[in-house]
Design a binder for these strands. Structure first.
Length: 878
RNA sequence: GCGGACGUGGCGGAAUGGUAGACGCAAGGGACUUAAAAUCCCUUGGGAGUAAUCCCGUCCCGGUUCGAGUCCGGGCGUCCGCACCA
């Protein structure tokens, strides 16, 4: 076959891509109808925050979703594949402060830019369903649901802490607290108590936990992370008597929660959260304690900040009496690592078996007594110094518990104390506790969904009547001063009470942006409904999302909140199901090498020249030749300047090349390293496919399928159907990198076949080559849709490949008559044996023992055993 | 600190407990070309040997197994999340 072809000019990606995008657009082939009778498939990628421009992480995420969407369409499904904007959030306010641009203007400009960028990627999205969460047409429904949740008892107001910047007089997000100081002012942050709105997600702790078992298409690691986050623990509520003379206001007891009642005889101290009522009472009479509690307030509110801070305490002078020995007095401390939110805000400390407690006693010289002896340890010599023992074992130093296992001891303690009563209550009660806290949704910020509440002096908290929704954000705001512009707006918050018409104030807090993203997937099913958040027929037909794809960083919060919100919507009649996402896939990040100059400045990859290989690799500044340090491979970020702009890549190579490369190198759940060589490899493959298809297009095959295929045709057909089988399987399981490898293998086999063919191949081969071409194009279409359309047309088809069915597999072609099995001797491979596909074990064994290599390895001895694993391997045990 | 993951050639990676290194990249050699680009062909984990072939190799140390990259225990290293970033 000659290489001369009318189609051997290079593929012009840029020209072809915009051309095909117009064709798809004009024919509206990606618009989804809610009355489509075919089996539904809802594929969704986590919608982006409109930060300015799309980044490579978006390209990776949306390409994966698009592959699934296109594959499912080809498989005959009605596919819902929408896109929108998670458009509220702090960066818009930061832009307003830093650049004097209104958050709304900034956000919509970003949306316009990013929409254009996404469109240039050739994604098969139904843009008619586009939503932006900052649009009142979206958030008015969210306000309606807030009020419905309120009526259903799913919302409450309570106190909680925020990071307070005492200089800027503003609430800070955890990410705005750097080393305990405000990011703009540099002032040491304080904790402040505010009355805030909460969704009662903790009502669903058990339900959210047990239902994880039903999510069998979620990654195990995400389910495990959620399980640990919910943190169910079975323990004991236990009332300690206080030594009467020591209590500040004649308090008689202190109630604690423990999961380690077995270690009660190892107790060395009691500890209270700084906010605990008893701590507060003691502080009122002790200025030094009050000062200590004040000091605890100068700590960030994040868990990591609390856990990594030095364990500090203050002895209140109060003594608690041991439940099994009233003469045993334990000192009561206030400690900075005890949380008021968890359990009762008080604990007993057993330093020998808990790291935090041990750190604490080592600071305050309270000592420790081991009470659980690890198996195999001598109880007489077992001591604890710097590492506590938190495993199971036998009880020691524990009076009546001695000799029991620690699990038996837990039971014994519980049984004894729950029978004892003081007042009308038992001294101890078994209790199931959860780490999961209620979801605080109040934010003291402008750019978020207003909470539809009016505060009236007479009527209290009043919901805004439905007819007055949406409560829209005022646009005439300024960001000259720190703090919430809604709060200092001259008129916006002044309203009449909906109940009594007296002067009242609007709630000026807005909602956490996680609320916006907790139901957008439901809104996509009918974004045109102006009357209510969802349309039952649509939402119940489309949900749950069949395949949800997004970053692992959302493994806990976004996904857990959405699971709760869907249940809350169910309870209030907005959905008919509990779980929003039947299938979940979490993809890895896009990372890139970093480069630094001698002076420590980061350098963009575009300005770096790399020479040498392996250890000899070195980098220089392209312009001056100044040597650069090659740094670690890190998540692309503006601060490290290791970003690649998708626009540049699409302009230089086209969207298909970028899409292909994003899928090709790494397993999708793992990080992928962006390299220039990798992109060029993808680009060469695009051109190679185009040339190959051109050569196949020149072959004129018979119009009807031949009845017989010769060896050459058989070989290429096996390659085609083998690839079809693998690629189908790989896409269905989202193993895109393997899918790419199989397409490469098929392309290699096909170019061999083309190379071996005569100028005018026999009809059976010509037919097989054309069949292979048709299969090849449809196989890579989900990944490179523009190139696929161009190739499909080049092969003479008048249809769009985007609307074509997936190729039909001929399974007979995958079956071989003989198989070659590897032969091991003592687990090491020594030879191969080729046998009939259906050969019995005895036949295989005989064939194996006759092999020269086996005879030599056995050296005349009889084999002890021959293990034949059907279709797999033979192992001779000598 | 707590929770979760990951670790295989020069590089990204492949491998239902069953031939370690598919496929791609990079590198080296060759063909074509006045030359270059592009393209095509060959080689490519390390070591020994003319060769057939053999030995060593999946972060480290142990264990289970006929057989371990894969399972179990203990280390080391890297990364992610931690409730007001999205």
């Amino acid at each position: 076959m000659t290489a001369d072809s009318s189609k051997n000019e290079r593929y012009n990606a840029r020209e072809a891509e915009t051309r095909w995008q117009h064709v798809w657009d004009e024919r509206g082939i990606y618009a989804t109808k809610n009355d489509d009778p075919r089996p539904k498939y809802y594929v969704l990628e986590m919608f982006p925050y409109p930060s300015g421009r799309i980044h490579m992480g978006h390209v990776r995420n949306y390409t994966m979703g698009d592959v699934v969407a296109r594959y499912k369409r080809a498989m005959g499904n009605a596919v819902l594949h929408p896109m929108g904007w998670d458009a509220f959030g702090m960066p818009a306010e930061n832009a307003a402060i830093d650049r004097k641009v209104h958050p709304k203007e900034w956000t919509y400009a970003n949306i316009a830019t990013m929409k254009k960028q996404l469109q240039s990627m050739g994604l098969s999205l139904d843009w008619a369903r586009e939503i932006a969460t900052c649009n009142p047409s979206y958030y008015k429904h969210q306000q309606k649901m807030f009020l419905d949740f309120l009526k259903a008892g799913l919302v409450e107001r309570k106190q909680s802490k925020v990071n307070w910047d005492p200089v800027d007089h503003t609430v800070l997000a955890n990410e705005q607290v750097i080393d305990g100081r405000g990011w703009r002012s540099g002032a040491v942050v304080e904790q402040r108590e505010l009355t805030q709105w909460f969704f009662k997600i903790s009502d669903y702790s058990e339900e959210l936990l047990t239902a994880l078992d039903t999510l069998d298409r979620w990654p195990d690691k995400v389910r495990l992370m959620q399980k640990n986050w919910i943190g169910r623990s079975e323990g004991l509520l236990l009332r300690f008597m206080l030594d009467p003379g020591t209590a500040p206001n004649k308090e008689t007891e202190l109630e604690i929660f423990t999961t380690r009642a077995d270690t009660l005889f190892g107790a060395k101290f009691m500890a209270l959260a700084p906010d605990h009522p008893l701590a507060q009472a003691a502080a009122a009479k002790n200025p030094k304690l009050a000062a200590f509690i004040e000091q605890c307030r100068h700590m960030g509110t994040s868990q990591a900040a609390i856990d990594t801070a030095e364990k500090l305490g203050f002895d209140t002078g109060i003594k608690a009496l041991h439940p099994f020995d009233p003469t045993w007095k334990l000192p009561v401390y206030v400690a900075n690592f005890i949380l008021m939110d968890y359990g009762t805000g008080a604990i007993f400390g057993c330093p020998a078996h808990d790291q935090r407690d041990l750190d604490f006693v080592n600071t305050y010289g309270l000592g420790n007594t081991p009470v659980v002896c690890p198996p195999g340890q001598d109880s007489k010599t077992f001591v604890i110094t710097t590492t506590p023992y938190d495993g199971d074992g036998r009880m020691i130093n524990s009076r009546f518990l001695d000799g029991m296992t620690n699990e038996e001891a837990k039971e014994a303690v519980a049984k004894r104390l729950e029978r004892e009563t003081r007042g009308n209550r038992p001294v101890a009660q078994r209790q199931v506790n959860y780490r999961l806290r209620d979801w605080g949704i109040s934010r003291q910020r402008y750019w978020g969904c207003p909470i539809p509440i009016v505060h009236c002096n007479k009527c209290g908290v009043v919901g805004v009547p439905e007819k007055d929704l949406p409560v829209t954000l005022p646009e005439d705001v300024n960001f000259d001063k720190p703090g919430n512009p809604l709060d200092r707006h001259p008129t916006w918050k002044n309203v009449k009470c909906p109940k009594c018409a007296a002067s009242a104030r609007r709630e000026t807090d807005t909602m956490d942006t996680f609320v916006d993203s907790s139901w957008y997937f439901a809104r996509f099913t009918d974004p045109w409904n102006e009357k209510s958040p969802t349309t039952p027929a649509a939402v119940n037909a489309w949900l749950p999302v069949d395949q949800y794809i997004g970053g692992i960083e959302h493994a806990i919060l976004h996904l857990l909140y959405s699971r709760f919100f869907t249940r809350a919507m169910h309870k209030t009649g907005h959905t008919g199901m509990d779980e929003p996402f039947a299938g979940l896939f979490t993809q890895g990040m896009v990372v890139h090498e970093t480069y630094r100059s001698k002076s420590g400045d980061w350098v963009e990859p575009a300005n770096v020249k790399i020479d040498g290989i392996g250890d000899a690799r070195h980098a220089t500044l392209a312009t001056t030749g100044e040597p650069l340090e090659i740094g670690s491979i890190e998540k692309m970020s503006k601060s490290k300047k290791n970003t690649i702009d998708p626009d540049d890549i699409i302009a230089a190579y086209g969207a298909d090349t970028a899409r292909w490369f994003m899928l090709s190198d790494s397993p999708p759940e793992r990080d992928v390293i962006w390299t220039e060589e990798g992109v060029q490899g993808a680009w060469r493959f695009v051109q190679r496919l185009w040339r190959m298809v051109g050569e196949i297009a020149d072959v004129s095959g018979p119009s009807t399928r031949p009845t017989e295929f010769g060896p050459q045709s058989q070989k290429v057909r096996k390659a085609a159907h083998g690839a079809l089988s693998h690629v189908s399987d790989d896409i269905a399981k989202l193993r895109f990198n393997r899918c790419v490898a199989h397409i490469y293998e098929f392309a290699n086999a096909l170019s061999d076949a083309i190379g071996e063919a005569e100028t005018a191949p026999a009809p059976d081969l010509a037919w097989a080559l054309r069949e292979s071409g048709d299969i090849l194009v449809r196989l890579f279409h989900p990944m490179m849709p523009h190139l696929a359309e161009e190739c499909w047309a080049a092969l003479g088809h008048k249809t769009l490949v985007a609307t074509e069915a997936w190729p039909a597999l001929e399974p007979d072609l995958l079956v071989e008559n003989t198989i070659t099995l590897p032969v091991q001797v003592n687990g090491k491979k020594r030879a191969d044996v080729t046998v009939a596909r259906d050969a019995g074990k005895a036949d295989i064994e005989a064939a194996v023992l006759a092999l020269d290599a086996v005879i030599k390895a056995l050296d005349g001895k009889r084999p002890k055993k021959v293990i034949v694993v059907p279709q797999r391997i033979v192992n001779v045990v000598a």
